[in-house]
């Protein structure tokens, strides 16, 4: 499997992983890194130290110093260590297990220890090293934006004006009143689940939906939003059949 993106950020218990594709031209990487940081500036604010992971190729010392500079100024991120990754062992995708870990915020959190089995939708080289699911505890408030390459679980509410963006699924263990964008890089099988689904707007893949005007959603039961024939459909979570269910 090739890493398709040149610049990837991943939260983990140890810190924020920055995975760079060393095969790519270094100038391109620098530009992409700047762009990525700028786009999600708020997300990275107050983020923990960064661990740079370089894949099999690795960077020269000068290049690492340059990366360190980009992170430090103007984004205020500190490069803690550089990891050189060995070739990932081959795994059977069917039996693959992915760990769910909480994102390190102000203080390190305990690992949940829980395991989630998921049908393999996409396999990436990095899945063996880093968690695919971000667990966020707390209310996501107006103006806050959580963006993650993977799935996101929010234990708390997402308020109007807040935004959650995930390349995979989004689960809100609370009320979703803001904006959620699942499958943000085009995964049309992504879904949004919330204990109460009252979003300002929902996006799945590149489809945008909003609740009908004037109607206050009366449902107080957990619901799931998915794509069906190009439109976003919301249904009660109970009794829902997932792809692959038999």
């Amino acid at each position: 499997m090739e890493i398709t993106q040149d610049v990837v950020f991943k939260g983990s218990r140890e810190g924020l992983y920055l995975i760079l594709n060393a095969k790519q031209d270094f100038e391109v990487i620098k530009e992409k890194l700047r762009e990525h940081l700028k786009k999600s500036e708020f997300f990275f604010k107050g983020a923990p130290d960064v661990i740079l992971e370089t894949g099999e190729e690795g960077f020269s010392l000068d290049e690492i110093l340059e990366i360190q500079n980009i992170l430090a100024y103007p984004f205020g991120l500190k490069l803690k260590k550089v990891k050189h990754r060995e070739k990932a062992p081959k795994r059977e995708p069917q039996t693959e297990r992915r760990t769910v870990r909480s994102v390190p915020q102000d203080k390190p959190r305990e690992s949940l220890g829980s395991r989630v089995t998921e049908r393999p939708r996409y396999t990436r080289d990095i899945t063996g090293v880093l968690p695919d699911t971000l667990l966020y505890k707390g209310t996501v408030r107006s103006g806050q934006r959580i963006a993650y390459d993977g799935s996101v679980v929010i234990v708390g509410d997402v308020n109007p004006g807040a935004e959650v963006r995930a390349t995979g699924d989004i689960v809100v263990m609370g009320v979703l009143r803001g904006l959620a964008h699942a499958g943000a890089e085009g995964d049309t099988s992504a879904s949004v689940v919330a204990l109460r689904l009252e979003p300002t707007q929902l996006r799945i893949g590149d489809v945008i939906g909003r609740p009908p005007e004037g109607e206050r959603s009366a449902g107080s039961e957990p619901e799931v939003a998915r794509l069906r024939d190009g439109t976003i459909v919301v249904e009660p979570l109970e009794g829902v059949r997932w792809e692959g269910d038999r």
């Binding site: 109007p160 300002t200 707007q201 945008i208 909003r210 609740p211």
Partner: peptide
């Protein structure tokens, strides 16, 4: 956007 009732249309 909220005062004008257009919040949910913002892309």
């Amino acid at each position: 956007d909220v005062v004008m009732g257009l919040e949910n249309r913002i892309v």
